[in-house]
Write a protein that binds this DNA or RNA. Structure first.
Lengths: 349, 349
DNA sequence: CTGAAAGCGCTAACAA
DNA sequence: TTGTTAGCGCTTTCAG
């Protein structure tokens, strides 16, 4: 990729004996050009291997036809599905997607956002781990349309996260499910099956204070709320914030009891725990109930199939793109909450 | 994102009472600037919310610090792992990754490549479905360093794919495993366990002729080769090129026989088939042997755990980045073949 | 150590 | 229908 510079629109113009303006008209289907001339130019462009320089184009127009998609990682199939869906959806609208991974690190996330802002992308779909006034201000200053997913950022004027339900205004348009309601409803179904003790596994909550854990917090709150509605003693609700491991299994559920249900804030944890229990010779749901969250598509290969809560990923991806385009168009879309659904699976009695 | 234009380096210069050149020196750690001046400028930049316009920068320098990663999709965890790994690895080298998904569609793929070329990315890691002289020429004309993964493109001068082993020159540096050898070795291990009939499932092969199926073809060839080495009749080797389905299961393995092994060219198919057989009440490996390929990380949640062939994804991602950087640096890296390994799992007797 | 000026390649408004 | 021209924002000589 050394020698021989790239062919520019000027080279092309010269070669065709026309002006750059005419070349531009030919290349961009702009009106006011003789079909014959256009044909000649396009042909020559092909011959010379002309490639539009998008940086220059973007610089000149201020537009990009590019949107940024910022996610944690792709370990979780959840995000992979999202990426697929958003890419497809955006493409249909004539946009490209630049996917960036943050690994849940605020520093990395900011880096990604700066990069996207620097590239003057037309908009960003963001799954953030940040929150707070400073972050919101900075994001606003970037003057880039943003749609949030995963974690909301309630508008500061509304005050803190209110565990007792009150979906208020958002600092940025959000699309996702109502995590509180989703977990609440799922737990109600679980408890209706007779479970009386609940272990709630949510490793990420240990990062509390350090980042935006809105969705996780809401799920926990939803579970607690449902638990108390069933009149069960708070002491029977146990919260664990460690990653799945043998030790954790031992320490916290010494002998699985049939009236205990293990609730995991993510299917990934549920799968790990299921794996551990099975290896240890326990049988689900005989010895223990299990509920995950996300309805990862890989669950269908697992036996017994974990109970979980479905998030309509495809609709979510489509909606995110639609909302972002709206926002790019100058309107401010309302936050959108999609329907969730509990899926019983085979790990509940 | 309407009103209020973005702050430019000129605005910044004016505000600081210096020239654009000086601002540039401050912003890019270039020598020849008084520390005091630099400090003042950086401070002011912060205050004014200055953001470097990367399009302009890229236009002026011709560089980008951006590499493209072109993959099929993220349905397959295989690619998700790859994306994670490449992103991490590239970031460490100071590069950003633009991930683009092709859905295995040659048209889409070309679209992605054109887009990346237009953006003048510094290099591309590509998993292609294309091949042939025209494609190679076009890719070369883009004058962008390329590293291939997944499917090789043997140099045309070498001639057609030779099923009988001869890893020759590549049109572009390639990194991956030796698919022929990997499958060959795995099948040898399988046959050594006493299987005498083999069903090879590779849906993608039906696209033959339409695209680059190098890896798939090699795997098939490797299997055939091993099969014949064991002196088994060619008639006992059955190739299926349909997607997993009930019908396929019925049609092709009416009653599983204990001396039959089902070999899938991808773990995804293996999982689907396992699922179907299990649902139908068959037990593996009692009724049938099963071998997948890729060693997807989700296998560990599945029981019985499918036998498979491991590809060292992380090493592969790292190597791809390393090779690409080498290529960007002007050298031409050699193709690299990483070690594979058969993993017996629990679906072989 | 700093300023001035000429591009990078493309677009858009205005002339012709 | 086509040409001309003035930027877009940053980098990079070359003077000062």
């Amino acid at each position: 990729m050394k020698d021989g510079k790239n062919v520019t629109s000027l080279d092309l113009a010269l070669a065709c004996g026309v002006s750059q303006g005419t070349v531009d008209r030919a290349l961009n289907d702009r009106p006011g050009i003789k079909p014959e001339t256009k044909r000649r130019i396009l042909e020559q462009a092909e011959v010379m291997g002309f490639r539009l320089n998008l940086s220059a184009s973007s610089l000149a127009t201020g537009r990009n036809r590019l949107i940024g998609l910022v996610l944690f990682d792709l370990e979780n199939r959840f995000f992979a599905q999202m990426a697929n869906c958003v890419t497809r959806s955006a493409r249909q609208a004539g946009y490209h997607v630049q996917l960036m991974l943050t690994g849940k690190d605020p520093i990395e996330e900011q880096y990604c956002l700066d990069q996207l802002a620097g590239r003057r992308v037309d908009g960003v779909i963001l799954c953030t781990v940040q929150k707070g006034e400073a972050f919101v201000r900075r994001l606003r200053e970037a003057r880039i349309p943003v749609v949030l997913t995963g974690n909301r950022i309630p508008d500061e004027t509304i005050g803190q996260t209110d565990p007792e339900r009150s979906i208020g205004k958002d600092a940025f348009p959000f699309v996702g499910i109502d995590d509180f309601r989703a977990m609440h409803d799922a737990i109600c179904e679980v408890l209706a099956r007779g479970y009386r003790r609940l272990v709630f596994l949510a490793p990420s909550l240990s990062r509390a204070g350090k980042g935006n854990l809105y969705a996780q917090e809401q799920r926990l709150a939803g579970a607690r709320s449902a638990f108390s509605e069933f009149g069960l003693p708070a002491g029977s609700f146990r919260l664990l914030d460690r990653k799945p491991s043998e030790k954790l299994m031992n320490a916290c559920i010494p002998g699985p009891e049939p009236d205990t249900v293990l609730v995991c804030s993510s299917d990934l944890y549920a799968l790990d725990m299921l794996h551990l229990f099975t290896k240890r010779g326990f049988q689900l749901p005989r010895d223990l109930g299990l509920l995950g969250f996300d309805n990862l598509d890989i669950l269908r290969y697992v036996s017994p199939r974990p109970a979980t809560v479905d998030i309509p990923m495809n609709d979510l991806g489509d909606a995110a793109v639609r909302m972002l385009l709206e926002s790019i168009g100058g309107r401010t879309p309302e936050s959108l909450y999609l329907p969730h659904a509990m899926i019983p699976g085979e790990t509940l009695r």
